[in-house]
C-alpha cells in the first residue's frame, strides 16, 4: 500500500496551479488536504504523474462575509469551520456539520473544497452545501465561473471541472435569523462514512426551502420543489405536512430498491425535519 511514483509541486497562485494542471503531456491532480486522495494514492487507485499542492495559495484559505453571503476559500479546513474561525451565516449549521465529519485528525487537514470536488455521495459537504443553496466559484488559468454546487457535481467522484480548472471557493447565502435547518447523519460509529444523510433548510423570509437526501449510490437527491414533499403550504413548519410516501417514492426512483435501506433514509429525513421544526 505505497503509491506509484509521482512528482510534487506546491503552487503559489491559482494561475500557477492551473497552468500545471492544464499540461497535456502528463496527468496532474490537485492535492488539498489529502484525506481522500492520500488513501487513493496508497491503494494505487490514483496514479497521477504530478500532484499540485494548492494549500499554500493564500486566496484559497480566505473566509469573509461578502454582502448577503459568506465566501469560503476551497482550502478552508473542516476544523476551522468547526472551531468557528469563519463568520457564522447559517445559524450554526456549518460548524455543527463540520464537527461530525470523521475524526479531528482528518478534520485538521481535510478541506471543504476537497470534499466537494471529491463528490463522494456519502460525504457531508456534498449534501449540506446544496441544502444551503451554496454556489461554487470555479477558476481556470484565464476565466472564472460560478455554478450551483449541485450542478458542479456530475456523478459520484466526478466533479464537472475542465482541465486546468480549480474549485476556488464557495459562496454560501446568509440565512435569516428565523431560518431553520436540520441535519441528520446516521453512521455505524463516530467517524465512519454515513449510511444515511438528510439535510433540510427552511428560510421563509427568503422564500427558500431545500431538502437533500444523501449517502446513496448516486449523487444526493436535491429538492427545491418543496410542494412535492410538503403539499402546497410552504409557509407552515416543515414537519406539519410532511408526506412520507413522496420521499419513499423518490428514493425508489433513485434506485434504492431495498426496503430496509429506504427505511433508514426515511428515518434520517424525518429526524432532520423534526430537528428543524423543534
Amino acid at each position: 500500500m505505497k503509491p506509484a511514483p509521482f512528482e510534487y509541486a506546491r503552487a503559489g497562485s491559482i494561475k500557477e496551479a492551473s497552468e500545471l494542471l492544464a499540461r497535456d503531456d502528463i496527468t496532474a491532480r490537485i492535492l488539498a488536504g489529502g484525506q481522500s486522495l492520500g488513501p487513493m494514492l496508497n491503494l494505487r487507485l490514483a496514479q497521477p504523474d504530478l500532484l499540485v499542492d494548492i494549500t499554500g495559495i493564500p486566496d484559497l484559505v480566505a473566509a469573509e462575509r461578502d454582502g448577503d453571503s459568506l465566501y469560503l476559500g476551497a482550502c478552508v479546513s473542516h476544523a476551522n469551520v468547526e472551531d468557528g474561525r469563519i463568520p457564522d451565516v447559517t445559524n450554526g449549521a456549518l460548524a455543527e456539520v463540520a464537527r461530525g465529519i470523521a475524526y479531528r485528525a482528518v478534520r485538521n487537514r481535510g478541506t471543504i473544497g476537497g470534499s466537494l470536488a471529491h463528490c463522494d455521495p456519502a460525504a457531508d459537504w456534498p449534501c449540506v452545501l446544496p441544502a444551503l443553496g451554496a454556489r461554487a466559484v470555479v477558476q481556470g488559468a484565464n476565466d472564472k465561473r460560478e455554478v450551483a454546487v449541485e450542478e458542479l457535481m456530475q456523478a459520484p467522484f466526478e466533479p464537472g471541472l475542465e482541465p486546468g480548472e480549480i474549485l476556488a471557493g464557495l459562496r454560501i447565502p446568509a440565512m435569516s435569523p428565523d431560518a431553520r435547518w436540520g441535519y441528520y447523519k446516521y453512521c455505524r460509529k463516530t467517524g465512519e462514512f454515513a449510511e444515511a444523510i438528510a439535510a433540510v433548510a427552511w428560510d421563509p423570509a427568503r422564500g427558500f426551502a431545500r431538502i437533500v437526501i444523501g449517502a446513496l449510490d448516486t449523487l444526493p437527491i436535491v429538492l427545491g420543489d418543496n410542494e412535492r414533499l410538503f403539499g402546497d403550504t410552504p409557509e407552515r413548519k416543515p414537519f406539519d405536512t410532511y408526506r412520507p410516501e413522496e420521499a419513499d417514492r423518490m428514493l425508489t426512483d433513485a434506485g434504492v430498491r431495498d426496503p430496509l435501506k429506504r427505511q433508514v433514509h426515511m428515518v434520517a429525513l424525518r429526524r432532520a425535519l423534526e430537528f428543524a421544526s423543534a
Binding site: R249, P259, L260, Q263
Partner: peptide, 14 residues
C-alpha cells in the same frame, strides 16, 4: 424485526 413482522422492511412506513 422485518422477519418477525412478516414484511421485508417498512419502506414508506417511517
Amino acid at each position: 424485526i422485518a422477519k418477525a413482522k412478516g414484511t421485508e422492511g417498512e419502506g414508506g412506513q417511517a
